[in-house]
C-alpha cells in the first residue's frame, strides 16, 4: 500500500461526521436521524482503526475500541427503533417535528 499519512483518513472521517451532523439537524424523519447517527459513529470508528495502526504500540487497543463502539451502536439502534415503533403506535407518525408533547 502507498504510505498515506493519517491526516488523510482523519479528513475523511471529519467529512463523514459533518455529513451525518448536517443530516441529523436537517432531517424530520426519526429513522433518518438514526441513519445520520450511524454515519457519525462510523466516522469515529475510522479514526479508532487508523490510529490503532499508526500510533498504537500494541496495534490492538483501537480495534477493541471499534468493537465496543459497534456493540454500542447496535444497542442504540435497537432501542431507538423500539421507541420509534412505540411512538408510531401512539401518534400515528414518525415525523420528529410532530413529537411536541414534552414541549410544555
Amino acid at each position: 500500500m502507498t504510505d498515506l499519512d493519517a491526516w488523510v483518513f482523519v479528513g475523511i472521517a471529519l467529512i463523514l461526521f459533518l455529513i451525518g451532523f448536517a443530516g441529523f439537524i436537517k432531517s424530520q424523519s426519526a429513522v433518518r436521524m438514526l441513519i445520520s447517527i450511524e454515519i457519525m459513529i462510523n466516522s469515529a470508528n475510522i479514526n479508532f482503526a487508523i490510529f490503532a495502526l499508526y500510533n498504537d504500540l500494541t496495534f490492538v487497543t483501537g480495534h477493541v475500541g471499534v468493537i465496543i463502539s459497534i456493540a454500542l451502536a447496535a444497542a442504540e439502534a435497537a432501542v431507538g427503533l423500539g421507541i420509534i415503533l412505540s411512538i408510531f403506535r401512539t401518534h400515528g407518525t414518525i415525523d420528529a417535528t410532530d413529537f411536541v408533547k414534552l414541549k410544555g
Binding site: E38, A74, L81
Partner: peptide, 21 residues
Amino acid sequence: VYAGGITVLFVFAISLSGKEA
C-alpha cells in the same frame, strides 16, 4: 453486525411504520 444486522432492523422499522414513514 452493521451492514447485515442493523440495516435489516431499519428496514423492518420502516416497513412497520406504514406508508407515510
